[in-house]
């Protein structure tokens, strides 16, 4: 039987692990998000739509949002090489593109959740397949991290849709500044469950009032 973490979607597969989940669930925690084993549920068979490589909306023209990430990525690249002025220039270009990107008016949580589901059901599997044929281990790593981070975010969005945002009140929201993993808790995890960096790489997301 397979048991799934309701927080992040991590699956405990009894067959692979060689131990019944009931034997370990008590006092055991999800290796991805730290949820207690007792909240895991039996995985329901999911109809995985087989998706062919999805077509992009406009294959030629990249959006401003894409340019923004391209520039902020290169800003980080400069920062890692200790090229501070260059990093600031790329950061400026990234901010420019973020500011000119069209606003996503009239969207709600379900729109976000549905986009995230599309990534998990179609776009990431297609990318993984391409990376496997090309033996591109860099991209396989991107898929491994990106899928986990996306799944965690989706589970949080779905939880908000289902029960509102009370579960976030009185606690903190943390983002791993390396892989983007979101963690809810008073303190960040000692080591990022996705990319394994230490806790000081996590950033606490402040609310409007606390700024």
């Amino acid at each position: 039987m397979r048991y799934i973490c309701p927080i992040c979607g991590y699956v405990y597969d009894e067959e692979k692990e060689g131990r019944a989940f009931s034997e370990i669930a008590d006092g055991w925690f999800c290796p991805i998000c730290g949820a207690p084993g007792t909240v895991f549920t039996v995985e329901e068979p999911r109809e995985e739509a087989v998706v062919a490589a999805p077509e992009t909306d406009s294959p030629e023209k990249q959006s401003f949002g894409e340019f923004a990430a391209l520039c902020s990525n290169l800003a980080r690249g400069c920062e890692k090489q200790y090229l501070e002025e260059e990093s600031a220039l790329y950061r400026r270009l990234a901010e420019y593109f973020t500011a000119v990107a069209p606003k996503a008016k009239g969207k709600n949580l379900e729109d976000l959740a549905s986009c995230l589901r599309n990534d998990l059901s179609g776009f990431y599997p297609a990318l993984r397949q391409a990376a496997e044929s090309a033996k591109d281990r860099g991209i396989l790593r991107v898929c491994t991290w990106g899928e986990k981070v996306t799944r965690m975010l989706l589970s949080l969005v779905e939880r908000c849709q289902k029960e509102g945002t009370d579960f976030l009140k009185g606690t903190s929201v943390w983002v791993c500044t390396i892989c983007g993993f979101i963690y809810i808790g008073d303190n960040p995890p000692e080591i990022c469950p996705v990319c394994k960096v230490p806790d000081w790489k996590f950033e606490k997301v402040e609310g409007r009032r606390s700024v």
Binding site: L70, V149, T150, T165, V173, W174, V175, G180, E203, R208
Partner: peptide
């Protein structure tokens, strides 16, 4: 809602980080 504000700000950061990572491994 301040709690939703925090989560959505975190989401925007998280998505950007994942996007940057993709960009880095895709020729940049």
């Amino acid at each position: 809602d301040d709690a939703l504000y925090r989560l959505m700000s975190a989401a925007a950061k998280s998505i950007r980080l994942v996007h940057e990572d993709l960009s880095r491994e895709s020729g940049y």
